[in-house]
Design a binder for these strands. Structure first.
Lengths: 344, 344
DNA sequence: GTGAAAGCGCTAACAG
DNA sequence: CTGTTAGCGCTTTCAC
């Protein structure tokens, strides 16, 4: 019963015209008479004609589709970025095909192949955290398909059609610590995850440099390598509270651990921010819900998605023969000061 | 410089074989000799041959792609569902094309067209909240493209290839209220949004029926039509606390308003759950972060996505000529009792 | 202003 | 086991 859709050939036959004319009329080509266009359009309407993008794409060699590959679509960050990507892509007239690597390098590779097979015109990728070799991007580079890494990028993978969008974690951390110092804090602790991950490395460096720039010592005692979860934050804070001289502030590399810290402070009958100020990182939705509300750093997730698409389009437009690869774009993060770090 | 990809024709020429043989070899067809297959595969490997899905899809008449249309990819619910969809689709060998309606009926319509033009094999939709007419789904139905609505469904839109996946809001609400009653609560308030929205209507009805089933009166004073935000919840709670006889529990139709209620209770120097028990709805991530942790109802978002894809595949397999439309699937929600509603 | 013809890359029926 | 042929639906020269 499959009601086959009307094709250009069908329209052509019905109107006694040639397929070429129909095609031209539908794409509002200049050299088709208005009269003909009108007839064609009307019949198309009547028959609910739907152009077959597959065929058009095949013929044109352009699919009008962008490929997106993210580790997953859960949590806070990736959905937001994907939202930014989808929105911007739609605005520029691209379709979007989305794949998840599930943090698995093997799946990442398969999905890259899949996207290339699907003839996407460009690819946006955030790396799986298990990815350490980049052979699968070699093919993309060779085919000169524009490739934009975002957030989790390959630093030493360049090419005339490869670029990246990141957020300046260093800068964000630096701002946080400066802000805490301005609030009068002098013993500022830092919660961080493993430093082989870029985000932690950079945030940590921002922390150190900001302290030094303001003439404050770096006290290893105050640097906690902890699991960046609520529990991890609570545990780390408990330990800090046992120090002979406890800290007067905590900068946590994410919001979850910051919340954990706040809870530990509270249950030790101390107050945030009076006794200990706390700042997180990422501006998760729940930062507005805690008591006190948590200061944090906004990562401009949506902006990142949007920027990545724009960058891709720029590469698409200029073609691969421009002067050198496009410069990576580094977004400025935004410190949001809320109750948890405002002493007065 | 665009390094054109190797095509089947290229392989054929190089090996002195016909395209058909190459095609068959690559798809591991039975009637190609192992020797030939080996040669073909090796050359394909060497040349980094990538099959052109567009061409294959056009020829086969099957694109292997599912279309997804959601209001947006933000917040908690939709990203989760999309994640479920993407994961299950990948498992079943489908690509996924994702569009956002931005809660706009007009965009919804355009995106439906887009998906159909892209020759998707099936469509998964959650309606924009501004959609009140359904003409744009008419075309989908006529073309017999399997269509699955999820969460926000069209109730009176049926067809041999149309179905739906929902969650049983009524049941969830009923469970909540029963649980509160079992905790000894007798004056249970309800925060709800406008009742023309299905989710609110059903949750509200579950509330009423559970009260009645346990012989408790329905007190209009305790039913608060409020903005379902944190602020809205706080405001509503403040009002309730002014009543001569205040409630001993609140069932909020979402988590955000529930958090607001908790904050109001706390700042009135009353205790949750001792004085007033609170339960939300949706099991947002932040329910684990509040003090006390918020009891809520899990909507099985990922499961919903997964189920929707499975349902779609079933329709795809059985074809449009089965006996009647597939039955809508109603998922059972899961009450999660946490601190905010446990009296002992 | 319109038509004829060719072909994007692949697959499937049919023939040997 | 392999090749020939035809064509999915569309666009785009090139003619008229």
């Amino acid at each position: 019963m499959a009601n086959r859709r009307a094709s250009i050939t069908d329209l052509a036959k019905t109107l006694g015209l040639s397929p070429s004319t129909i095609s031209r009329a539908l794409s509002d080509h200049d050299d088709v008479s208005e009269a003909t266009k009108a007839r064609v359009r009307q019949l198309a309407e009547e028959l609910h004609y739907q152009p077959n993008q597959l065929a058009a794409a095949l013929r044109r060699g352009r699919s009008n589709t962008l490929g997106v590959l993210v580790p997953h679509i859960t949590g806070h960050f990736f959905p937001q970025v994907v939202h930014g990507i989808a929105t911007e892509a739609a605005k520029l007239g691209f379709n979007v095909m989305i794949c998840q690597s599930n943090e698995d390098s093997r799946q990442e590779q398969k999905n890259i192949d899949l996207l290339m097979n699907s003839q996407v015109e460009g690819i946006l990728v955030s790396l799986a955290n298990t990815t350490h070799s980049f052979g699968h991007f070699e093919a993309v580079r060779q085919q000169n398909i524009p490739l934009v890494f975002f957030d989790r990028v390959v630093e030493d993978f360049s090419g005339s059609n490869v670029s990246a969008v990141m957020i300046d974690d260093y800068q964000g951390a630096y701002q946080v610590v400066t802000h805490l110092i301005e609030q009068g804090c002098t013993r500022i602790a830092h919660f961080t995850g493993p430093l082989h991950l870029n985000i932690h490395k950079n945030r940590h460096q921002g922390y150190r440099d900001a302290l030094q720039a303001h003439g404050l010592p770096i006290d290893d005692e105050l640097i906690m390598f902890c699991e960046m979860s609520q529990k991890g934050g609570t545990a780390a804070m408990r330990q800090l509270l046992k120090l002979p001289q406890r800290p007067d502030a905590v900068f946590s590399s994410n919001d979850l651990a910051a919340i954990g810290a706040i809870q530990a402070v509270k249950s030790a009958r101390l107050r945030v921010p009076k006794d200990i100020a706390v700042v997180g990182f990422s501006n998760e939705m729940f930062t507005m819900l805690t008591e006190p509300m948590l200061s944090s750093v906004d990562q401009r997730c949506e902006q990142m998605g949007k920027t990545a698409v724009q960058l891709l389009q720029k590469m698409l437009k200029s073609g691969p023969n421009r002067q050198g690869p496009p410069k990576p774009i580094v977004l400025k993060p935004k410190l949001l000061v809320r109750e948890s770090s405002q002493k007065r």
